[in-house]
């Protein structure tokens, strides 16, 4: 049976891992390559490197970090942040990434998803959505790391991204991100029930129970975690054993 994936999300600014709250107020927490290797040794299923400020300042500095990581980390690696052109994608893949995540540019020019899927295959295109709750069961998509409203309804946008040929959808709750107060379960559940692409939930895990709560109440395929690992609040082993003991399919 297919397992639920636990993905370590490593946000990077310059050469450091950083972590903020609501994607803001960023502080340094470590070296990205050391952390990726550590999480790999601990049994992480996937690594997600995010250039946290690239979309905002229009630049991308991840190439060297990715290239180094792929020599010691043998699980899939996704790169996001500041991916704007087909050449950016080609460069990220050439440095060893398996997938790229695209948010801001997909909002500006949705056809980049379609074009990228045709050139590189849907399997390497992760559409990233930053969602902010605006009413009961209603969310708006944001760009530039949760800074700018995109004027798009998250559900409609997710359906559109599937039609455009994205291979997976990663949804980050801007409200929950970095708060360690748990996932926006209603948001994840809505998307998991509305599109047939694999859904990666992101933003809010503070305890392993937050993750099992999300899994019990929504059919997400993968769960991205950051603070909980970066601040040593728990471990990959503890998260996986809890999920396993509750009957979820997990790679141990």
């Amino acid at each position: 049976m297919l397992k639920k994936r636990i993905i370590a999300r490593i946000d990077i600014k310059n050469e450091f891992v950083i972590k903020g709250i609501h994607l803001e107020g960023l502080r340094k927490v470590g070296n990205p390559n050391d952390m990726a290797k550590f999480y790999y040794d601990e049994g992480i299923d996937e690594i997600f490197f995010m250039d946290a400020v690239a979309a905002y300042y229009d630049r991308n500095s991840l190439g060297e970090i990715i290239s180094k990581a792929t020599k010691s980390v043998f699980v899939p690696i996704t790169v996001g942040g500041g991916i704007r052109t087909i050449d950016d994608i080609r460069e990220a893949l050439a440095s060893g990434a398996d997938k790229v995540a695209i948010n801001t540019q997909a909002v500006r020019t949705p056809e980049i998803i379609n074009k990228a899927a045709r050139i590189f295959g849907s399997q390497c295109i992760v559409a990233s959505i930053q969602a902010k709750k605006i009413a009961h069961d209603k969310w708006e998509a944001y760009i530039d790391n949760g800074r700018e409203p995109a004027g798009l309804d998250v559900l409609q946008w997710a359906i559109k991204l599937e039609q455009l040929g994205a291979g997976e959808i990663m949804v980050t709750s801007v409200d929950q991100e970095g708060t360690k107060k748990g996932y926006d379960v209603a948001l994840c559940s809505l998307l998991a029930n509305s599109v047939s692409l694999p859904i990666i939930a992101s933003g809010g895990a503070g305890t392993p129970q937050d993750i099992s709560n999300l899994c019990r109440n929504s059919d997400v395929d993968a769960i991205a975690v950051a603070s909980i690992l970066h601040y040593n609040l728990s471990s990959i082993g503890a998260i996986k054993s809890l999920l396993h003991s509750e009957g979820f399919n997990i790679r141990l």
Binding site: K3, K4, D45, E168, S196, L197, D219, D221
Partner: peptide, 15 residues
């Protein structure tokens, strides 16, 4: 079976 919300592509770890 897409009616049952079964997903494709098959992405992830499987035995």
């Amino acid at each position: 079976d897409l009616i049952k919300q079964q997903r494709l592509p098959h992405v992830g770890w499987n035995n």
